[in-house]
Amino acid sequence: MEKKSIMKKITGSREALLLVVLILLCAAVSLRSPSFLSVQSIMEMLKNNAVTMIMSLGMLCVMLVGGIDISIMSTLAFAGMSVGMLLKYGHVSSTLLCFLIAMGIGIICGFLVGLVISRAAVPPIIATMGFMYIYRALAYLVGNSEWAGADALGSFKDFALGSILGLNNVIWVTIICYVIFFFFMKWTRTGRKIYAVGSNPSAAEVSGINVKNIKLLVYSIMGFLGGLGGALAVSIYASAQPNMQYGKEMDVIAACVIGGVSMSGGRGTVIGALLGSLILSVIAKALPIIGFESIYQNTIKGVIILVVVVVNVVMQRASDKNNLKGREM
């Protein structure tokens, strides 16, 4: 009995499985190209994928309550463009202030999304589709057909170049976000309420959880991370353009899905989101190395998502069938 449960824990744990996949993937790629596993190359990869990795935390929360948010990259662009324009015209110069402004804009954007979804009962896909248009348009309107290049950004772009203790600032931000969320989701009441609402909304209501406020909260969190992502993206790529990260929300959703976050809510962990986005980053980086041109990237990404969700279903069916066989009659 005991043994069985330990075995089950290892084989049954999504995270352990993902970790194995990640390690195998890295090993396979580094056989082909030893430089892949160099510190510099890994740092580069983490920095370039920081935005996706951070945003997957927000998407994790949203998907945990059974929702989805496809407006995030528009929020990101809006926040990023606002900061870019403020810098360009010299209204602000402090890096910290820029981050605060971007995050503030993000929270407001997310709060509005959450308000529409939780209070007006608009289905998340429809609401965020609308806001995807709106915030992207705002990003263009803020820019007024201009964009901010490297020289306009001044010292702000140095943030992504600087490092503390040998680790790039951007990576530090990512790590801090993950640590905070790891604790938030596992050790705080609010974090567990998010799980409860996703697992069984009516039971949550009966046990006195304010489901509407939890929904409002997760979209606000998502917006906040979108704003943070906006500031980071401007700094990393040293430019603020209204079309930045266009279509990348699919990457974020994909990272979560690969990481085992259920589309119907209740299931998913911070570690899963981390591993999911890491796997996606490694694949993106590995493809050119193993001889695929970058144009194959999207197709392969799509196929991976499809395979992951289909394999999930097949495995679930098999385990259900197994459970049934075990039932005494």
Binding site: R192, A196, A203, G266
Partner: peptide, 27 residues
């Protein structure tokens, strides 16, 4: 049963009145 199928038994038992110390859930 009005339970949370994705959560552990302990969490189901203590949902709403978790054991808290310093704002942290004491698993």
């Amino acid at each position: 049963p009005t339970s949370y199928p994705h959560l552990t038994v302990a969490e189901n038992i203590f949902m709403g009145h978790e054991i808290i110390k310093n704002h942290m859930i004491q698993w």
